Amino acid sequence: MRFHTRKWVKPQDLNPNKTLFGGTLLAWIDEEAALYSIVQLENPHVVTKFMSEINFMSSAREGDIVEIGMDVVKFGTSSIVLKCVVRNMMTHENIIAVENITMVNLDENGLPKAHGKTEIEFVKHRLSK
């Protein structure tokens, strides 16, 4: 699992219990999955199709720093399936794990488009080509 993004939990991210609002965390995960997919598939037209059940294992409080990790489960013809772990860097606890986030590669008309990818590519390798 590679952790690409860190988020600082701010007052506007809290629920009435003064812990990280689940909807905010899910929005962060969705955005990270989209960014990861766009880079991997080299196409800005990617959408979320499916997110498996979620289970909050712990939380975060104001001032905590959370880290979002993504990894590829598999490449489909027009999709990429990811898994995600979010952890609290202050308490060293996992906050949430999402086992399946399916992102779909689209053409300019918004229809699924084959991407031809079969393995993770790193930007540094693309730049050296």
Rank of each mutant, 00 (worst) to 15 (best):
T5Q: 06
M51S: 08
A27V: 07
E108V: 10
N88C: 06
M1V: 04
E62I: 11
M1I: 02
E93W: 00
D107S: 07
N100P: 00
N100D: 08
I95L: 09
G69F: 07
N88A: 05
E62T: 01
V81N: 13
L82T: 05
L20V: 01
Y36E: 03
L111I: 07
A60I: 05
E67I: 07
I38N: 01
V39Q: 13
T19N: 14
C84T: 13
K74G: 06
F75W: 13
D64T: 03
N88S: 10
R126D: 04
L82I: 06
C84Q: 09
N94V: 12
F3G: 13
L106A: 08
V86Q: 14
D30V: 00
D71T: 03
N17M: 14
R6K: 15
L82P: 02
I95Q: 10
F3W: 09
F75G: 00
L41V: 09
I120A: 06
K83A: 12
Y36F: 14
K10W: 04
K113D: 04
I29N: 02
K124F: 15
A27H: 08
R6Y: 01
I29Q: 00
N17P: 03
K49A: 15
V85F: 05
E108Q: 13
P112Y: 03
T118P: 03
S128A: 10
M1R: 03
L20S: 01
H45K: 15
R6T: 15
I120Q: 05
E42M: 12
V86N: 07
P112H: 07
I38H: 04
F75P: 04
D107L: 05
N55V: 08
L82Y: 02
S79I: 04
H45T: 12
L20W: 03
Q12R: 10
M51V: 15
M57V: 04
M103E: 09
L35Y: 08
H4C: 02
I80S: 01
G116I: 02
G116L: 02
S128F: 00
E31T: 15
Q12M: 08
Q40Y: 02
D107F: 07
D30Y: 00
R126I: 08
V46D: 05
S58D: 15
N17E: 14
H4M: 05
I120H: 03
M70S: 07
F21H: 15
M89W: 04
T48F: 00
S37V: 11
S59D: 06
H115Q: 11
N100C: 02
M51I: 13
L25Y: 03
K117D: 01
H45G: 04
N15R: 10
R126N: 02
V66D: 03
N109K: 14
F3V: 11
H4Y: 10
E108Y: 09
V86E: 06
S37I: 08
K74P: 04
I38L: 09
P11I: 08
L14W: 07
G22D: 11
I101Y: 01
T48S: 09
Y36M: 02
E32Q: 09
S79C: 09
L20M: 12
M70Y: 05
I29W: 00
V46K: 10
W8C: 00
E121V: 12
A97K: 09
N17A: 15
